[in-house]
Design a binder for these strands. Sequence first.
DNA 1: GCAAAAGTGTTATCCCTACACCCATGA
DNA 2: TCATGGGTGTAGGGATAACACTTTTGC
Lengths: 228, 228
Amino acid sequence: MATRSNTTAPKKRYRVGVATVVVVFTIQEEALKVLLARRAREPFRGRWALPGGFVRPDEDLDASARRKLGEKTGVTGYYLEQLGAFGQVDRDPRERAVAVAYYALIPSDRLVLRPSKSADAAAWFPVDEPPELAFDHEAILETARERLAAKLDYSTIAFQFLPETFTLVEVQRIYEAVKGEQLDKRNFRRAIQALGKLKATGKKRRDGFGRPAMTYRIKGPKDVEIIK
Amino acid sequence: MATRSNTTAPKKRYRVGVATVVVVFTIQEEALKVLLARRAREPFRGRWALPGGFVRPDEDLDASARRKLGEKTGVTGYYLEQLGAFGQVDRDPRERAVAVAYYALIPSDRLVLRPSKSADAAAWFPVDEPPELAFDHEAILETARERLAAKLDYSTIAFQFLPETFTLVEVQRIYEAVKGEQLDKRNFRRAIQALGKLKATGKKRRDGFGRPAMTYRIKGPKDVEIIK
DNA sequence: GCAAAAGTGTTATCCCTACACCCATGA
DNA sequence: TCATGGGTGTAGGGATAACACTTTTGC
């Protein structure tokens, strides 16, 4: 048995790099997409990865995640929620690093991408068929998908994908894309209207043919509320 | 505008101390209790705090949380789940530190406490009336309570509080303690039996008077399953 | 008038809730 | 026999799920 260490001696504290990583979702072409960046540096150079980077001394974790995302997309005012910390000892081949993961939802009408210096390319991928990812990002992505899908059922989080005005069919497509299943049109409309969060506006013809759909906007602040 | 930094120069990476903090719950005297330790050192010397400590180089985050808890209670095999990372810049007055918070559930029949060198006392407190806490531990405790209460409704997590054998009334007391409200006896028993997770054993008289209650045990592995 | 997409009601079933009395035991 | 806590059933209301046709528009 080892002798007890001197309790008054100053202990050298072990420190680790802390990064934030963001799973950015949007709806594009009726499918759930995730933003990935190709790594321009080692480790995993050339591999696709979730956007992220190390936290700065003077910024909170949330602020770090938003900063990283701002650099990549230029978007502001989106929904951001923490997923948790990922800290397996060997998750970064360079050295010990803990990632605090977030997920963000961006409305489908503002998804411009910016070039950045740490990645030579950024693109939206269907979540069903992502490329091979760097670090433990596959696990993080999977956690984010599960969280998002679960939250659809008991909150108004899906509205965060919507632009200023939208049609009921568009709302339904979001639910279907995230859950990966078809929903009954009549039941869906009744349920979504029963939330009392939508307000009709004028009319609008979507793309292509057919009868024009009524457009709606969110009544009140665009917050995520827990329902049921 | 600042000049762009040289992209090839090695950047000094900023590192921070990472601690794990655990909200340990148990049911005692029909009330939800949380384990707190009185701090023997600065900062916040003498203040009550959640058990925790800095992560070691060779241990995963979960392992760190379990180690800390083992030092404090000696218990093993309990349920442990991550809550998330708490990393406000000023949450630790000494220096920047990120806490990865967990919550754990310990069955009511094994809650022995051990003395430790970083705290001169440890005790169970009712979650409704905790003392003033160190750091941001009040926020962490509140987050844990909310998560636990929410999870009661859609998982079998409450069973993690139960000893090997138990009565239906004891199960009901757990739900009532965590949710902070009275439940209808008949409806509760029907619902809990409908899960199909309980198996009757012999009979047993509880403390005091009255008709003896049937005892049950969990059928199958004692995992937390999502229900509904 | 036809192709395309939007919009609309009813019925059966299941689940949740409310509610009050009898039973087994020890003193 | 009484005090104490354990144990049991039913009925009504609300939510959910299944299901097919009509309307509006552009070409």
